[in-house]
């Protein structure tokens, strides 16, 4: 572990590159840039009304740890009556205005666009890699495309969901914890060959 990342400061994201055995990587990860993000929480007792408003607007929310997408917005259940919503090609302010118009004045909406980094992890060995640090069953029978979880990885809080059947997973990690999370991911994936992109050259 220390050898592989000895040259990487603990305070910086692991630089993009290929880690571990050469050849076709078993695991790939990329930082997904340009997403806006916000948290949405229903006022007490009004979860059903909030879900109905979003259904009318074309985003079917489910009050469960699931990821739901309508092509533009992706909503991930993080707790009863609470969701994390990400959007492509939109600023945080625009996302907040869009959600406010649907949710009404009482829902709690907070811009999280700068709070987290989002990583997409994929590849044939993705499950074997994630199993090293995630105490949630990721077998396809237990955790499928569209399932989500908020948990800890290596003592770092994460929200993640399976974003593609292949499988691919999207991880939301608090920005200041992202260097530590990436170190865990890099050393866990390196034995399979690990290709990391989107994190800069360090």
């Amino acid at each position: 572990m220390s050898d592989l990342l000895a040259h990487v400061p603990h305070t910086r994201l692991v630089p993009e590159g290929h880690y571990g055995p050469a050849g076709t990587p078993g695991v790939s990860a990329r930082q997904v840039l340009g997403l806006a993000a916000a948290t949405l929480a229903a006022p007490r007792g009004k979860t059903a009304a909030l879900i109905a408003s979003f259904a009318d607007a074309g985003l079917p929310l489910v009050d469960a740890p699931k990821a739901m997408s309508n092509g533009v917005l992706t909503a991930v259940g993080t707790g009863p009556g609470r969701w994390l919503i990400t959007a492509e090609g939109m600023t945080g302010a625009a996302l907040l205005a869009h959600l406010r118009a649907i949710a009404g004045p009482d829902a709690a909406l907070t811009d999280q666009s700068d709070a987290n980094i989002i990583l997409e992890v994929s590849g044939a060995a993705a499950r074997a890699t994630l199993a090293k640090g995630i105490a949630v069953d990721l077998d396809p029978l237990a955790f499928a495309h569209g399932d989500a979880a908020t948990t800890v990885v290596s003592h770092i809080g994460v929200t993640f969901w399976q974003s593609e059947e292949a499988p691919a997973y999207r991880f939301v990690v608090a920005r200041s914890f992202a260097p530590a999370f990436l170190r865990w991911l890099t050393v866990s994936a390196a034995e399979f060959g690990f290709a990391l992109t989107g994190t800069g050259r360090g």
Partner: peptide, 11 residues
């Protein structure tokens, strides 16, 4: 009841 089966260290 919301998250499913989880290790006690999350609590």
């Amino acid at each position: 009841p919301y998250c499913g089966s989880r290790d006690a260290h999350e609590f």
